[in-house]
């Protein structure tokens, strides 16, 4: 730190000289920085325009019915988005149902209960889980989770919940192991670290005096969490959950391995299905350039983009508001 100023004077020499060179340098540097910034805007605008234009053929061929149609027939050239949108939303919902409590539990434990050394170890483990490539989750899911689901979880769940009126039909069907439930579970494991690290950051950043005054009144850790920390950090926590949702919506490789890849829509969570991303990954190599099928896939991509942009924008707004308050 101390040596820096002397380096600069030594290199720049006379002040007069610095001014002329400096102004030119500032001009070039400023231009480069602005170019880089604008390049990012350009990429984003490019992605939007290119995907919408690529999907236009399908949008104009099927009209608004594209979104509500469940067809996916490459032979008769009938394509619809309903099944894969349904699969995307259902798997994401399942993922959230499992990931949010899990992430909350880990974050709560890390912030309030763990010893510093143990907390550092667990935090590293959580970050490593977040870093594992999605294809690894896919392989692990396909070879470990799917057989486990098929042999142990699904038959048992069907046995106990399959005849409950109302929710029973969610848990019926052949226990293949692959399906919406398995896809959702893998997604849950993948997004838990993201939600957890946002929650940990938020819980740590709450002013100590708020927690201390609640503890001083005799509140337990859970009461402090529920009545002080959570109300205070509600928005940022929502932002973290939305961030996880965004990840789950667009996740491709892990889901492709375990979801069973079938264009079906039904009540059973055990039945194979597909998501927008898995459908694109599977069908894209089999569609020729310029075909209606390719255009339908690009239209699906555009729909996925819109869904995830809305989610991510919400997440940004929540996080900004949550951390500024």
């Amino acid at each position: 730190m101390m040596e820096l100023p002397s380096t600069i004077t030594a290199r720049d020499g006379v002040a007069m000289d610095t001014n002329a060179r400096g102004r030119f340098g500032d001009l070039v540097f400023g231009m480069l920085a602005r170019l880089a910034g604008w390049f990012i805007l350009l990429v984003m605008v490019g992605i939007v325009i290119v995907l919408v234009r690529g999907g236009w053929q399908a949008f104009s061929a099927f009209g608004p019915g594209f979104i509500t149609s469940t067809a996916w027939n490459p032979i008769s050239n009938h394509f619809g988005a309903a099944t894969s949108i349904f699969g995307t939303l259902v798997t994401t919902l399942i993922a959230l149902v499992f990931a949010v409590p899990l992430a909350f539990g880990v974050a709560f434990w890390l912030v309030e209960m763990a010893s510093p050394a143990l907390a550092r170890f667990i935090e590293t483990a959580v970050q490593l889980l977040a870093a594992v490539p999605s294809i690894i989750f896919g392989m692990w899911g396909f070879f470990i989770v799917v057989p486990f689901m098929a042999h142990y979880i699904e038959p048992v769940v069907t046995h106990y919940l399959g005849h409950v009126p109302g929710i029973g039909q969610l848990f019926r069907g052949a226990p293949y192991g692959t399906g919406l439930l398995s896809g959702g579970l893998i997604l849950a494991i993948m997004i838990t670290p993201f939600i957890c690290s946002v929650m940990t950051d938020v819980f740590v950043s709450i002013p100590a005096v708020l927690k201390e005054s609640a503890f001083g009144l005799g509140a337990t850790r859970w009461e402090v969490m529920r009545q002080v920390v959570l109300p205070w950090s509600r928005q940022a926590v929502m932002g973290g959950i939305m961030l996880g949702t965004g990840r789950a919506l667009g996740e491709t490789m892990a889901v492709t391995f375990v979801i069973g890849n079938s264009n079906r829509m039904g009540w059973s969570l055990f039945a194979p299905g597909n998501t927008i991303a898995s459908l694109i990954a599977l069908e894209f190599p089999e569609s020729s350039a310029g075909s209606l099928k390719l255009s339908a896939l690009l239209a699906l991509g555009a729909i996925l983009m819109i869904i995830s942009f809305i989610t991510l924008a919400c997440s940004r707004i929540f996080l900004q508001r949550g951390t500024s308050s």
């Binding site: 992605i47 667009g250 995830s308 940004r316």
Partner: peptide
């Protein structure tokens, strides 16, 4: 425009990677 670039860059950070693949394929 700076806040716009920041917002867009954050969106790009979590855009589904398969869409980036489609984008590069098309262009």
């Amino acid at each position: 425009i700076v806040s716009l670039v920041r917002f867009v860059s954050d969106m790009l950070l979590s855009v589904p990677s398969i869409l980036v693949g489609l984008f590069i394929y098309l262009i």
